[in-house]
Design a protein around this nucleic acid. Sequence first.
RNA 1: GCCCGGGUGGUGUAGCCAGGCCUAACAUGCGGGCCUGUCGAGCCCGCGCCUCGGGUUCAAAUCCCGGCCCGGGCGCCA
Length: 441
Amino acid sequence: MACKICGGEVKMRKFTAEINEKDFGKEVELCGWVHEVRDLGGLVFVVLRDREGFAQITLPKKAVDREMFRRARKVRRESVVRVKGTVKAEEKAPNGFEIIPEEFEILNEADAPLPLEVTEKVPAELDTRLDSRFIDLRRPRVQAIFRIRHAMLQAIREFFDRRGFIEVNTPKIVSTATEGGTELFPITYFEREAFLNQSPQLYKQTLMAAGFERVLEIGPIFRAEEHNTIRHLNEAVSIDIEVSFTDHEGVMRYLEELVKYIHERISERCERYLEWIGVKIDIPEIPFTRLSYDEAVEIVKGKGEEVNWGEDLSTSALKLVAEDYSGYYFIVDWPTESKPFYAMPHENDPEISKTFDLMHGWLEIASGAQRIHIHDMLVRRIYEQGLSPESFGFYLQAFRYGMPPHAGWGMGLDRLVMAVLNLSNIREGVLFPRDRQRLVP
RNA sequence: GCCCGGGUGGUGUAGCCAGGCCUAACAUGCGGGCCUGUCGAGCCCGCGCCUCGGGUUCAAAUCCCGGCCCGGGCGCCA
């Protein structure tokens, strides 16, 4: 005998959003969660919610089975139900139709009280929501974020696939403790110490030596920084590319075209989800402004804040710059000393490097550079940054036997989601965020 | 890691400054009842809360110290 849920009658099952005029007068099957029950005595409305929307199940006492009427009236919110019934055109119903059920099966009754209100009658704090994320994610406006995030990931893969990129996966467990910059998470790897990788940088460069020419990686990165802000996570997803036989300008063009493409694709494909969260997408104009580090410093100094040339720009400095440059823009030509050892210095002025950050307002979204492909220059830069070439054995080897000139960048996907959807906290756009305090769920 | 602000029913808030009148209020929820067009349904009855530890005091949700946790900012970073 066919299973009621998954077999036999499955063809009849529809998402609420799939129901239209063609179904009027016909029988459909819906599965979902009980969003609300409005009991008017002789008439009961059950609002069924599924992934794609809502449908009103209407039970007039006199017109439906008595036992079913009693069951529907008493069902608790967020219980999982399967409803089979006739679609009836009804002006008074939301979306212009309602379902008069012949069957109303409670597949799994929900406990009460709920950890938070799915109906959003009472707001819940982000921390409460993250504690009960599975139920928070049922809320349409939360669901919408992840549907759009999915579309963004798809757009990224489409974009690079069409341009001849090879998507790769590099190890997340590594032995190298010293790319510099950030703190790493140490882990036990059998009898040795290992680390969770802070970035695929060294591996994607190695793949340039391997002749892959254009690689894309979408994967997690881990940073053990004890920061506590709305824009930092200890586990994030990074979009990384590396391209041979090009320079920083070449990969900046990929980046701005990609950002534009992502905006175009989600505004085409995610209309209803954007509506759920009340976000309007403006397609950014390319090319993005290229603001040099020196120009940024001048802006900040002009507004009365001190900047030591050579240092990274502070958050307050970036906020001052963002007063003049909203939306997406690049800050280019950073001091060589402020960037990682693998960034290529300019030939005519080695104090500055062929580097760039992609900004959205004051938020850094991506950073990249033309890389040093000359072995001896790279070793010298490693020393200058106070690091030890011995730590980079496998990496440096790759530069000795035919490493092409190359460039690349890494972009924080979670930050991009935050920027595009105007989220007030990066955690909103991550299913199960990892930060200084949160390891569960 | 540093600085500032917080922690009150399941959820979100009021009460704290000026300790007692708090047997802690409101909304939502939950349980029960009434109601045939709700869509934030309405009405009636009921249920449920002071973050933990220590201190001050005749008396602590309220004042003080510490822990844990949360929010924001900074540093660091993408």
